[in-house]
Write a protein that binds this DNA or RNA. Structure first.
Lengths: 184, 184
DNA sequence: CTCCTATGAATGAATG
DNA sequence: CATTCATTCATAGGAG
């Protein structure tokens, strides 16, 4: 697949088009899996700036990447099957957490989404120390977590572009990822 | 490679949507560079009618073309300053063309760049039809032409991130074309 | 080399 | 007017 080609920031740069490095793809993919779909101009700039440390990149590359990735996720979703079967529902505790469906137009309590709910519960109870990092306690009016095709939202659901102050789900759930993705 | 195949200009186009011919694009681009941004209904009709001699086209195609071109000239995925004063619906004049070196930090008049300038002159006099190999970017403030390692800039030189909308080089340099918009 | 696939880039066509 | 979606073109890298 994609490999640190001979074309990136290496010598003999005769490339006509952008060739993302593995690190760049990693970050982009993480952001995407975290729920980011259509980054704003500012987000694009920040991401691009950040990724430039891994190799040559332009804003438009980031823009196109998300455009393409989103489009192809959708287009190829026809051939893809669903993910693992969700566990079991739990009791409602945090009524301010909602789940948005894929379209982002419909919401329902987090308790209706067992898979995510368990994670959230753990975090809420401190089982996951990363809870502190979770921007749920910040002044953000919402938080989005992408899990499968669901989005976890707080306080201000039903926003279309709710990926504004995006905190990476991985960065929270999976601490090893130290990427300063929270900056985006 | 581009010849009237089954549809218009592009290859193997399935003709599901309008595919502008090179001539059509040229006229549209000329009009755009001449300052036209939001043509009226009547202008659209006239333009469309005129362009129909080059191939199939509808009014809405012209409408969308200007919408898209204007929008993409604007933010094209990179930093842009605030809105500038209107495009100044004037015919292209060459005295405001500058050349940026590869770093984009140094500028000098186009007339100091014999290679490009001569070609431009030739086109002016009809000796040369196009500089088709020169991708060009157009904006309210500037125009960019990638020629080797040079960038041709207009009005507002010394911008680094001027990679924007594409426009044919000859569309700008080639002057005799009546872009007074009077006909449209 | 040719063919194929993944994917970067571009742009027509909407929609709010 | 901006934003987004849908298609399409173009190209790099791998397989055979």
């Amino acid at each position: 697949m994609e490999e640190a080609g001979l074309c990136n920031s290496r010598v003999g740069a005769k490339c006509g088009r952008w060739n993302p490095t593995a690190e760049q793809v990693k970050v982009l993919t993480d952001l995407f899996s975290a729920g980011l779909r259509t980054p704003s101009t500012e987000q694009i700039q920040k991401i691009s700036s950040h990724l430039s440390s891994f190799g040559k990149i332009e804003n438009k590359n980031v823009f196109y990447w998300f455009q393409n990735h989103k489009a192809r996720e959708r287009h190829h979703h026809h051939n893809k099957k669903r993910r693992r079967p969700p566990p079991a529902p739990t009791s409602p505790v945090h009524t301010d957490l909602f789940v948005l469906d894929h379209s982002g137009r419909r919401e329902f309590p987090i308790t209706k989404l067992p898979g995510i709910w368990n994670e959230a519960e753990e975090m809420k109870r401190g089982k996951k120390k990363t809870l502190e990092l979770f921007p749920l306690t910040s002044n953000d009016d919402y938080v989005v977590v992408e899990a499968d095709q669901y989005k976890l939202v707080r306080n201000s659901p039903l926003r279309n572009n709710m990926v504004g102050e995006l905190k990476l789900f991985d960065a929270v759930i999976e601490p090893p990822l130290d990427l300063s993705l929270g900056f985006f």
